[in-house]
Amino acid sequence: MRYAFYIGCTIPVKALKYEISTRSLTGSLGIELIDIPEFSCCGYPVRSMDFFTSLVMSARNLAIAEKKGLDIIGICTGCMAILSEAKEYLEDPIIRNKVNKKLKALGIKEYTGSVKVKHLARFLYEDYGFDRLRERIIKPLNSLEFGVHYGCHYMKPTSAYGHFDDPSNPATLDELINLTGATTIDYPNKNLCCGFTIMGHAEELGLRLAAEKLECLSNIGVDAMALACPSCCIAYENNQKVVGKRTGKEFDLPVLYFTQIVGLSIGLEEEKLGFEFNRIKVDRIAKKLARD
């Protein structure tokens, strides 16, 4: 099981715990993630500058993996959405020909469309298999309760993602967390956007979006929020104090990546899961687990 690891821009700089826990988890599960230094930005920010350029950028990344004969696994939902949607656009031969001309100028033969792109969580769900994963769980997290935040780009656009999960009532991440023995809850604004993407243009709006979900989950009193995207994590964890200050509230809600949660359940040590980088302290969780 060898895959091209599409790490994206945000993770290696701003989400080290995600990267560390992903590398430990996949290593332990026997999923070999190959780093590809030639990969560039997926094209997300470029969409706001020039749509076609963004498409060429996405196609270049896809073509590089294709040439190496590797399918792509990523952990940033934004990158996955952009690359998957680019794949969808590139199914059209007219667009593909136009993009391929540009790729040729970049010294890349062509993009054919054979490469697959998947988020690690979806990969575990569809390819690795939950049954197989269940067998690896040696430290069940029965006492923990999470509120899962999927992130818009985890399953949308559904057409680009082969409709693998339902955006109105998503389930795959909940099922993944439930495998570990932990409980997940349904909560009113489960499908709400984190607001990260507009922080630079309409900060107030972005913060209010983030605040709504933090408030909801804090009131319910879950142990932590579980998520699968570095941008969402910045919105909910890195910015948690700012969000609180601006909206006149105080939050103390730990935020964990699904890789950290699954990692714990298969018996990986905390230091291998990047917990030292968690800004909202996870002591409560550690205590609960210690009691089990």
Partner: peptide
């Protein structure tokens, strides 16, 4: 146009299959 979070919900639900998000996104460009 700079307020759209690109969450794709509008595109998902448009009965005419309009890629609303992408169109607004392109308006930025």
């Amino acid at each position: 146009i700079w307020k759209c979070t690109t969450c794709f919900t509008c595109s998902e639900r448009c009965p005419q299959g309009i890629r609303v998000t992408d169109i607004l996104w392109n308006m930025r460009a």
